[in-house]
Amino acid sequence: MTDQPILQVENLTIDYVVLDGIIKAVRNVSFTINEGEVVCLVGESGSGKTTVGLAISRALPENAIIREGRIIFKGRDLLNLEIRDKSTIEDKVMMIFQDPAATLNPLFKVGEIFSDVIKHHLKLSDQLKIREKALEFLKAVELPDPERIFNSYPHELSGGMLQRVIIAITLSVNPKLLIADEPTTMLDVTLQAQILDLLINLKKKFGLSILFITHNLSIAAEIGDRIIVMYGGEIVEEASSEELLKNPLHPYTKGLLECIPKTHIKYSKLKSIPGMIFDLRNPPLGCVFVDRCTEATDLCRKDKPRLIEFLKNHKVACHLYRGSTK
């Protein structure tokens, strides 16, 4: 891992236009990913994680509007690319999704989808070469019997196998940055452990950087080098995973950590964060977490706390940490 940023996101602000208003899904989000690093984006449903991921892989739906911001990948701004640069960049950022079954077209065999992708990205046309390449990658994701899988339809494969197939397809175009959007949420715990293990191995093998999106802080802590906590479309805290677990600063992060049921304790009551996220069409004036925070003051209601580096390499956006060490 080097400290060379492969991706810089600056002030990213994204709206969705719907008939009855404008959903302000992501506001002023800035972060970086270094080469070879696994950065986890954590937050609950609706916090804008997927939207950030889609923006970076430039696959936002049509009703999304990027209001502001820059996404700099290897020194080039992805949002202002020349047409001819686009295809070369595309290969280097790839995204995998939560629902493997919805990503693959049910009408085509795994092999056909694979060939399409390889043909397009690697400009190969020799069927034998393509097949060879595909089998190589199916093997790399530890799928048993790649030949059979190459000739299967998606519905003939289990969820865990499908997710591996998608990872294989994604890796075949030789990406530098992989965005994984909750790739294990639909899987049961044993498969989840398998897929995470696989991703970590592949990261080393292919020299990937990974932006891993999840709502599960436990998973983030296990596989992430650094964790970014999002709430309601904004970043509230960012630190290395050890630091974040040892010393969570933001009340939301603290709440999230307390919610995780621990197997060695018999609870009489589980901790939870009461309340729910605000309407994203009307984000609050002040702190995003104010409605659910037990420590909120008047100031929190009126004034939005900025994301500051409160401790070394540990950023937080909360008025509790104002009179700060620099």
């Binding site: 696959a59 290969d91 693959l104 077209n105 990205h121």
Partner: peptide, 14 residues
């Protein structure tokens, strides 16, 4: 959502 075009787009093929 299952149109082939959009699906390939998700996989990076435009």
């Amino acid at each position: 959502p299952r149109l082939r075009r959009t699906i390939l787009m998700r996989l990076g093929v435009k």
